[in-house]
Design a protein around this nucleic acid. Sequence first.
DNA 1: GTTCATTTCGAAATCGTTTTCGTTAATCAA
DNA 2: TTGATTAACGAAAACGATTTCGAAATGAAC
Lengths: 341, 341
Amino acid sequence: MKPVTLKEIADQLNISVTTVSKALKDYPDISKKTKALVKELAQTLNYKPNAFAVNLRTKESKTIGLIIPEIVHHFFSSVIKGIVAQAEKKGYLVIILQSNESYELEKKQIQLLLRQRVDGILISLANGTADYNHLNDVLAQDKPLVMFDKIAKLVKCSKVIIDDRKAAYEATQHLIDTGCKRIAHFRGALLPQNSIDRFLGYKKALLDNNMPYDPSLVYICQCGDQSFEEGKMNARQLLKDHKDVDGIFINTDMVAIGAITEFNEQGIKIPEDISIVGFSNWFMSSVISPSLSTIDQPGYEMGKAAFKQLYKEMQQLKNKGPIVYKEIVLETALIKRQSTK
Amino acid sequence: MKPVTLKEIADQLNISVTTVSKALKDYPDISKKTKALVKELAQTLNYKPNAFAVNLRTKESKTIGLIIPEIVHHFFSSVIKGIVAQAEKKGYLVIILQSNESYELEKKQIQLLLRQRVDGILISLANGTADYNHLNDVLAQDKPLVMFDKIAKLVKCSKVIIDDRKAAYEATQHLIDTGCKRIAHFRGALLPQNSIDRFLGYKKALLDNNMPYDPSLVYICQCGDQSFEEGKMNARQLLKDHKDVDGIFINTDMVAIGAITEFNEQGIKIPEDISIVGFSNWFMSSVISPSLSTIDQPGYEMGKAAFKQLYKEMQQLKNKGPIVYKEIVLETALIKRQSTK
DNA sequence: GTTCATTTCGAAATCGTTTTCGTTAATCAA
DNA sequence: TTGATTAACGAAAACGATTTCGAAATGAAC
């Protein structure tokens, strides 16, 4: 029951291991006759090259690492799907790790992947990630690294993102266009670039429309496991603090759905009393009542694009060429539904 | 920028590679002084053992494979999370693949994982999987294999499941207990064991309560990407076919939510006109209106249990002991909400 | 028959670790 | 002093595939 090796094939045919190896890889200096013999025997013996040995020789494993803050999340699982699908097309396998939004774990996991000598790393940063030494470690080893969605602008590597600021601006503008006069914002955690950008887009839209920016209208949520609850809580708090608010731009759909639920329970009418725009276009947002206006964020495409870029860089590395970093910005779209007029 | 090797450390200290290797692994035949020297230098040079070489020597990669029908799915992503978390604790990495409910892909992916020589495989079968040669290939290579959720009873390996039949029975009984007289069933695809079992549980509950089993009340859906739409369609069809139905037991929450949406749109009152019980306890089922009574299916725990069993078997294999197969049945629970009286 | 090119193959080094089995030198017992 | 034991280290053989560099054998050309 031992796995078949090149040596076994060689012995059976009374030729050398070298010849067997070359025959299987169609080297030009092996006769057609020998090739046919070797290939046939390899077939019948069900020979599979030992990946460990191949990896050691070629110094690559055809495996990449993926670090994600949270797997159980519609957007991220779509990204995973995109990455895995694209990777498989190119013959790559994907090792997946979850940082749980923890900086410490993220660091450890990067080290794990480096030790495993994956050919490249894809990462979406944890909320808690404040410094980037672990990421620079990756680059220092000349290992391709592509960040997506939650990125660090300061790290010199390729990035796949959306224009969060523009999308948030559009969302807010939509609230303004539909008649909202006093617009609140439920923002994400403080560190992530995208929650900063969404906040800035919101703010800029207000100012461009000559509406005052009022910091007390900005509520924070961590957007972790408890997003739904956070949405409810923020909504409850908002009703206490500011009865005059008539529109909210919310950092993610899950939080928005929490808020909608709270408003429904309290008898606040959406969109008559308060209009809401979410972010992500999670499937569920089209299903709840009222359905949620939101920004469509293409998760699957983001995964695909991220892997494609990583693949390019891995090729460039193999060809000893310089690695060319790129910043890829995917298109978003405003989806108008019942939660806005 | 070359990675540090044992040889480099050995050269710098003027000792042999053997000694360095042993020192790092605390072999008893190396003096404390040498160990200290070696470890210190390894530290400062930031030595990381070459995983490829280690794999080749030890014949294990500390990596397992995971094949799942669909990543973007609340239940499955919970399972993934459970597996990844548990694996990381034991120092294992997880390679993830998605079969897209396709038998052909599943076969290919098993081969991929075997070629990669993962230490073990976790799998939840695709709907289309009808024969099990590819699975037996795994077992024939003495490679631990654990199936979960969507299993094949005929394959001789460990399994982690719930008692689908019992859970479905409970769900149906609950409908009966709350006064339903004519109960339909939206079942899953024909092949998967769990959709068969849920159907059988439904049927048995009817018969045990002296209610007639009417095949025309059983609707099929594939429970793939289009679950929500299938739920709507089935609901629409049901309203045309059988106006007297007052309860439905539905194979999965997503389909159930589709059905609820359709009923809401058509002005059918839930639970007054029709009661509904779903399956999975997807997060969203507590949020929609009316909230959905359902069976809680512990995804995260299932992932944890599946990896734990695989880990046990991998240990048994290392200790040259026989592999002991186990069937682990996790508890489910009926969650009563607004969609039933 | 000599020279040169071509075809076909293999020996051996290599990738970086692990592990077996010696070997040396020192220590101890008698 | 001799023999036996122990402590500390290294040489070398794996693991299985890849690849470089020759070497032999054949054929062609003169």
